[in-house]
Computed example of a mutant assay.
Amino acid sequence: MIQDHVLFIDGEAIVIDKPAGLPVDRPRDGSISLENHLANLTFGFQRWPTAVHRLDRDTSGCLLLARNPKAHARFQQAFEAGSVTKRYIAVIDGVPDEEAGLIDLPLIKVSSAEAGWRMTGDPKGKSARTRWRVLASREGRAFVAFYPETGRTHQIRVHAAEGLGIPITGDPVYGAAHGRPLMLHAAQLTVPRPGKPDVHAEAPTPQRFKAMGFGGGAEPDNG
């Protein structure tokens, strides 16, 4: 039940722990998406909540929904202004030489008839910056916290693959899936609200991370 995934709720906002595999936008084939669950997230309101931002289909974790149009507009402005704090966790297919850093790699969308579309680093692209920090490593892989300062499509996935030179485990587009699920999770979201408490939520580490030996203990901090 999607109601069981609610991490935060008040009169303006709901944050859910979006399951991996659930697309936010309705797919072209008409298969199940977040839209099919919105009627179960009204909690006494007549209006359905609406997603303020996007997570990739196979990325799990914190997703902000607005409960009315005015709140939606304010939250979108917070995202556009860069005042929203986000923390993601990921497992990557290697161990970086450094313990932490900043990836500053503009991104642009490219497409071809054979491979479809994808994002890639390009000086002519839109500005994209991601801070990162290694939390742990084992068996040739690293458990990494990513703190995106911008919100470009596939930003963390491309910054891992092209910025660090090490793709996220299970990424079928920018790495090699190897039959594994995408090991990317939106672990924390904080949205400031002038004159009101922040919208703040933390999504627990998914079982797929624990199965690889990562994230079974204390949650990583804010860096």
Rank of each mutant, 00 (worst) to 15 (best):
M1P: 06
I2Y: 02
I2H: 09
H5F: 09
V6T: 11
G11C: 04
E12Y: 15
A13R: 01
A13K: 11
I14R: 03
I14S: 03
V15P: 10
D17I: 07
K18M: 04
A20G: 11
L22Q: 06
P23A: 02
R26Y: 14
D29I: 11
D29R: 06
E35G: 06
N36T: 02
N36E: 05
L38H: 15
T42N: 05
T42D: 06
F43T: 10
G44Y: 08
Q46H: 12
Q46N: 13
P49F: 05
T50I: 14
V52M: 00
V52Q: 03
D56K: 00
T59P: 00
T59V: 00
S60C: 01
L63M: 00
F75V: 08
Q76A: 04
Q76V: 02
A78H: 12
E80Y: 14
E80S: 06
A81Q: 13
S83Q: 07
T85V: 15
T85F: 08
Y88N: 10
I89A: 10
I89K: 07
A90N: 09
V91G: 11
I92H: 11
D93H: 15
G94N: 15
V95K: 09
P96Q: 07
E99Q: 06
E99S: 02
L102Q: 11
D104A: 04
P106T: 14
I108A: 12
K109C: 01
S112E: 00
S112Y: 00
A115G: 01
A115F: 09
R118A: 05
T120W: 12
T120L: 08
G121H: 09
D122Y: 10
G125Y: 08
T130N: 08
V134N: 04
L135M: 06
A136L: 13
G140D: 15
G140L: 03
R141G: 04
A145F: 15
Y147G: 05
Y147W: 07
P148E: 03
P148A: 01
E149W: 02
T150I: 00
T150V: 00
G151Y: 01
G151R: 01
Q155M: 05
I156K: 01
H159N: 04
E162A: 06
G163C: 13
L164P: 13
I166P: 01
I166T: 15
I168T: 07
T169Q: 03
D171P: 04
Y174C: 05
Y174L: 10
H178N: 04
R180S: 13
L184Y: 12
H185N: 13
A187T: 14
A187M: 14
L189I: 07
T190I: 13
T190Q: 05
V191W: 01
P192W: 14
R193L: 05
K196V: 10
P197K: 13
V199H: 15
E202H: 04
P204Q: 01
P206Y: 05
F209Q: 07
F209D: 03
A211W: 03
F214V: 00
G215D: 07
A218V: 00
E219R: 09
P220F: 02
